[in-house]
Design a binder for these strands. Structure first.
Lengths: 208, 208
DNA sequence: TTGCGTTGTAATCATCCGATTACCTAATTC
DNA sequence: GAATTAGGTAATCGGATGATTACAACGCAA
């Protein structure tokens, strides 16, 4: 019922910092960079709004840190997978690693928000750099061909979109959704579905 | 050098309406829903800001119209492709149609912006509906299997991300970008590259 | 020309948001 | 235990933004 961390009075700034970063990741992931406010982040972290901006300088720098941390997690998860059991093909190991990452929607959602802001002079640059870092990892460290890497990334982007769209919210009401999700997350469907329950006020889909 | 349409004095409201919708598509596509302002749209369309909101009621309704029009264009392009030359496989026809759509970045970018806003109570619903409409078209009208449709959509999502990220801006400076783009747009690379010149102030990528 | 509906804008409003300032209080040090 | 640093917040500011209102100019019909 209670939150995981419920400290009273003072806390080390470093601890508070990761709390705020976690909150920012969730908020930015749901609302996007421009749609989120520093006050939303502050409330989610249980601190005051001025404290958030003073810790990170600007809203933009806060988002860049969130983005950077998301990329770090992906890269390290992939590196672990690459160093894993050589019996199973590397593409499958990486796929499993990616699947594990979906447990925290915000990681992948923040990446997607950055990816579609390529026209932004500062976020766009970081998005391109981060994306190409991942591509290079697939090519050079995982030993994939350009076509294999492209195909792997394509599947990942579709998974990201499906998560961002909250398609799981319509799992119960639309058989086509079930079918598609089954194709996007082969074998893992039931597992991943448990981690993505529909929002409380899930509106039934209306056709236009 | 001059814009396509340069009418003086009065114009029929319907004509003006499509001008504003075109402008809105570009602006929303670049900045996203929350990042764009009605004033940016107004300036791009050459009208006053109050006129924009009076024509469409609210900024949200304007975005929904942009989104709806984008979906309509995709659906009709796909239906044309499905009705095309039966000699060439339908997946290839659809791929060509999708490639043609990339000529207007904003169509696909607005879709992506909507797709990552699934948590929004009104945009999210439209995003899911529109996406599933496309999926159903692939399954029922194009006769694809669930796996074929999923694979097709995956490739499309990667293409959208690559366009949104403005990866073409780094084509000249990064060989890995060239390689990846070659894998994402097989055969069509040179063709599509002509339609996506880098921004004037293209910042060279910095590694973090 | 007068009248009137359509097309459009200038001015303005209320709100929100990121950022700044000034201040407060719990620890830590000496 | 006084002094000092570190961890915070309340209050507020200036600018941006979506929306409203009131008004102006054009064009057409009688």
């Amino acid at each position: 019922m209670s939150s995981v961390i419920e400290k009273k009075s003072r806390m080390a700034a470093d601890e508070r910092r990761v709390l705020v970063l976690d909150a920012a990741s969730t908020v930015f992931g749901n609302a996007g960079y421009a749609g989120a406010t520093t006050d939303m982040v502050a409330r989610a972290a249980g601190v005051s709004q001025p404290y958030v901006v003073r810790m990170f300088g600007t809203k933009e720098q806060l988002f860049l840190e969130v983005l950077h941390r998301a990329l770090e997690r992906i890269m390290s998860a992939f590196r672990e997978a690459i160093a894993g059991d050589p019996e199973v093909p590397v593409a499958r190991r990486l796929g499993n690693a990616y699947f594990t990452l979906t447990a925290d929607r915000s990681i992948l959602l923040n990446l997607m928000h950055a990816f579609v802001l390529g026209a932004d002079p500062v976020i766009g640059v970081q998005a391109r750099c981060g994306f190409m870092d991942v591509y290079r990892l697939l090519r050079e460290e995982a030993g994939m061909s350009a076509e294999e890497a492209s195909e792997f990334l394509a599947g990942g982007m579709l998974a990201n979109v499906v998560l961002g769209m909250r398609l799981f919210d319509d799992y119960a009401t639309d058989p086509a959704v079930r079918e598609l999700l089954g194709a996007v997350f082969p074998e893992k469907l039931e597992l991943i579905r448990k981690g993505h329950p529909p929002l409380p006020a899930s509106t039934p889909p209306r056709v236009t």
